[in-house]
Nucleic acid binder design. Sequence first.
DNA 1: AGAATAGTGTCTGTCAGACAGTATCGC
DNA 2: GCGATACTGTCTGACAGACACTATTCT
Lengths: 221, 221
Amino acid sequence: MASPKLYPLVVVDVALFSIIDGDLRVLLVKRAAEPELGRWALPGGALRPDLDASLEDAARRVLRSKISVDIPHLEDIRTFNGAHRDPRGWSIAVLYCALLPRDQVQALVRSKVEAVEWACAADPGHRLAFDHALQLEHALQVLRNKVDRHALPLHLMPERFTLTALQRTCEAILGSKLDKAVFRRRLKGSADLIETGEFERGVQRPAMLYRASDGFDFDLR
Amino acid sequence: MASPKLYPLVVVDVALFSIIDGDLRVLLVKRAAEPELGRWALPGGALRPDLDASLEDAARRVLRSKISVDIPHLEDIRTFNGAHRDPRGWSIAVLYCALLPRDQVQALVRSKVEAVEWACAADPGHRLAFDHALQLEHALQVLRNKVDRHALPLHLMPERFTLTALQRTCEAILGSKLDKAVFRRRLKGSADLIETGEFERGVQRPAMLYRASDGFDFDLR
DNA sequence: AGAATAGTGTCTGTCAGACAGTATCGC
DNA sequence: GCGATACTGTCTGACAGACACTATTCT
């Protein structure tokens, strides 16, 4: 199909994160074609200049082919490139990080052919194809850095959520416990969080439900 | 030369920073070819898969063609891409940030043909080609964020330097004054700085000369 | 009443910002 | 000695970490 002597192969790979059972998970697909057939990998695909207006569009298209929901957050992480990272020749992989709300994980896998798995992000438990283990590591580090610096991963939350649920999500990303009082103190000043008037239902003591503010987009300052 | 319907044009652009007259400057070249002939731009060039083992190598090659010194720091910033950012068609520009020691600015411009200029980084004073104004803005922001988070821009300094000189460099990057006592207090703990036994010469009161530690590389933590 | 979880008050150490003070050099 | 610059001491306010405390709802 290509002659990667003059032109590099350009692909987008996506690390799609969500929260399942209180863990940060990442979507993996089992490769159905050579090279690296049968190995687990981040979902990815070649850029189609005739179809995609941008690399971000390409990433969206790749995700749509695996998954049947809209992704609220998609962010450029960095490129992995060189003559040898893909056996097909000179290649550039642009890595994107995407977040899927925890309440939209079920019933979204479109493909009946490909095997798909929500693996633990910190330790996927498979040897990944190409340099995808490295890519995953970088995506996770960017995510952790942002949360460390007090960006709120609201794109992982459902429409309405409690502060405790948000704290659990941050803990799942960071891989460590946070102090409740400290966490809530910081949130006091945040313009990203809006109190809905509503409360939880059917729990010991119902907590206030919050939502993301309208312009929210998970950037830093 | 190319048929950018099937394959995107892949270029590297480099924001090369240095310090001149106490200001943060960036190297611009006047384009000698279409498109955007005659307009000022960041130095850049197309990837040559036959010559370059990686995009970083390509960036080094591009810089070597304009400048006759080795660059101590080169870092991937992000990609700019899409069907319309370059009139030649679908393109991917990978932006690199490079730092040149302030004492190596003179006598390094290789090209006799192209016009070259060290423009003020915060306000280059020209309308730049393509999306280079945006690219420069991003490179500068990454640089500022790093210094804000206490990374030391030692690659901009000569072999030996005083703490005051280092403070001036940080101030030039940030575009604002720093408090001397605060700045030095932070440096106390740093493993990146090594006291040489030596002192300045021929100034009112000679200050201690420092150098970068051996493994230093301008990363964060 | 008691369990469980929501939410708050407070003490302490660390660090940034501000600013004044002391030390040491060239002249 | 004097001017200039290197370098340090100290006060204050903001905030993180730790932990105990109060509040409210379900069973």
